[in-house]
Design a protein around this nucleic acid. Structure first.
Lengths: 186, 186
DNA sequence: TCACGATATGGAACACGGTTCCGTTTGTCG
DNA sequence: CGACAAACGGAACCGTGTTCCATATCGTGA
């Protein structure tokens, strides 16, 4: 997907990425292409102009979300007084993003090379950000120290398994509880 | 699915089970219901009369195949001179059956209770049969002794992963090689 | 500024899958 | 041999992803 020449095309591509992400969170990764197009305010043809295939769109959203999630870390730290508060809000973003991640398995066959590549990209990009937030909270003496970033992310990831199939399962709340549980008492 | 009263209905139910199994082996578990109906020589309506849902059909085929695979063991042992020969032919049946098993994951959500139940049924029913054939071959001094039935079945199962998505991957041949490799030399 | 070609758009139309519906056929039982 | 409940076949329906193309829009060169 090379950046389109025309301004409206670039705008639409961006709108689609946002709409798809929102739709995935709202209705799961099985959301029909038509619904995504409608949310973005474009026709289905436009979707396929930008993303040759439904799977490509999912991949694009995934990359986009990893990037957004990674870039959100630093500002969160700056604008929030508390390190733990920043961490909590970041985990919130992370949970929404995980819906897309879990959906990847359905969109790409696990033996697809892109799958592995995307997963390492995911780790490389996000673990340092999580570690940064965790360190900040630790240095502020707000959280217990016996947990590394990767474990935390894995834990949250596991909490979110199945969240896209059962609407009664509130993964977001559980993740919040987990983070709250990190608070150092006394 | 209580056994139908009318003879033709019973015949068709059986034909559907056989046709579905054959179709799954030939075209993968994604095979359209229409194709299965055609192979069985019935209309799609008949399929849905017997199995309310595509997933139900897959489950039924699964149970049926486990049963058939289990019951095939003893006769194979009787009619084949060699214990290893019987084992080899049984593993052949088992491989075909695994295509259906792998497809289950797509038909039933993993958190479905039926999934777990089916898996334990699978183990309870098949491991003893495999063990029986393995023992026979062992007692005839035809195979090495350092392998239990469960491990063998797991090995074959793993060899078959992905066999339904990539037609170039000949899991059947690989499994045959594995069994051939059990032969005790010298 | 504006005209015109390259780009991009929308959404109807298509392919293909599961599922439903119902007029017709057929087995079974008195 | 009826008669009738059971079973059947397959056209029709709905919801997917994807393609196509007449139309609208952008941006550039004069």
């Amino acid at each position: 997907m090379p950046a389109p020449r025309r301004a409206d095309a670039r705008r639409n591509a961006q709108a689609l990425l946002d709409a798809a992400a929102a739709e995935f969170v709202a209705s799961g990764v099985e959301a029909p292409v038509r619904d995504i197009a409608a949310r973005a305010g474009v026709g289905v043809g436009t979707v396929y102009r930008h993303f040759p295939t439904r799977a490509e769109l999912v991949v694009a959203v995934y990359r986009h979300q990893v990037e957004a999630c990674a870039e959100a870390g630093e500002p969160l730290l700056a604008e929030t007084g508390s390190g733990l508060g920043a961490l909590a809000r970041w985990i919130d973003l992370f949970v929404d993003f995980l819906v897309t991640k879990h959906g990847l398995a359905g969109a790409l066959r696990p033996d697809d090379d892109r799958f592995e590549a995307l997963h390492t990209y995911f780790l490389d990009r996000l673990v340092p950000v999580c570690a940064r937030l965790l360190d900040a909270a630790r240095e502020a003496g707000e959280v217990r120290t016996d947990l590394d970033a990767l474990s935390l992310m894995r834990g949250v990831g596991n909490l979110c398994v199945g969240a896209d199939t059962d609407p009664r399962y509130d993964a977001r709340a559980l993740a919040a509880h987990l983070v709250a549980g990190l608070r150092r008492t006394g």
